[in-house]
Amino acid sequence: MSKKKDTFMNMVISLFVITIISGFSLGYVNQLTEQPIKDAKVAKKTNAIKLVLPDFDNNPVEDVVLIKSENINDSIEVYPGFANNEFVGAAVIGSSEKGFSGLVKLMIGFKASGEIQNIEVLEQKETPGLGTKMKDEKFLAQFRDKNPSTYNLKVKKDGGEVDALTGATISSRAFGEATQMAFDEFMKNKENLKTPKN
C-alpha cells in the first residue's frame, strides 16, 4: 500500500477519523473508571478519618459539614463522628499556605472535649528529609491528647510549646498554624456538630 497523498481532503479526513476514534475510546474508558475513581477517593478519606477519630459507627464522609470561614477562601470540611448517636469528636481539615513550599493540609481529629486525638498529613510539599518529618511519630506524638486552648501550638522559638523539626522551623510553624485554625473552627461550630443529621 502506498502512502496517502498530501491533498487537503486526505489530511482533513485522516485527522478527523483519528480524533473521532480517540474521543470515543476515551469516553469509554472514562465510563469504566468513573466509579472506581470515586470509590478510591472516598476510601482514602475514610481511612484518614479512622486514623484520627475515636471509634465511631456512622459514616463521616456522608455526614460532612462544610463551614464557611472568614479566614480562608475555601469552606472547611468537618467530618463528625458518632458512636450510638453520641458525639465522639470530629475530624477537621486544617490547612496553611505558609509551608516552606506552599500548602500544608492536615486532617486533625478532635475529641468531643476539644483534645487532639490524632493528626494525619494529607498534603505537603516540604523539603524531603527535613519538613517531611512532620509525618513522623516523634513529631506527631507531642500533639496527642493536648487541648490547644491550654497547649500553645506555636513552636518554642515563637513562645509556644512545640518542639520544631530540626532544620524545618517554617514547616513546623505551618503545621501549628493549620492545627490552630482547625481547632478554632471546631470550637466555634462544636454545638452545631453535636446533633446527628438524621
Binding site: 500500500m1 502506498s2 502512502k3 496517502k4 498530501d6 489530511m11 485522516s14 485527522l15 483519528i18 480517540s22
Partner: peptide, 17 residues
C-alpha cells in the same frame, strides 16, 4: 495506520494517538 496518514499531518496525528 502509517499508510493512512498523509505525511504533512503525521506529527499531529501521532500526538493525538
Amino acid at each position: 495506520v502509517k499508510n493512512q496518514i498523509p505525511s504533512k499531518v503525521r506529527i499531529p496525528a501521532f500526538i493525538i494517538i
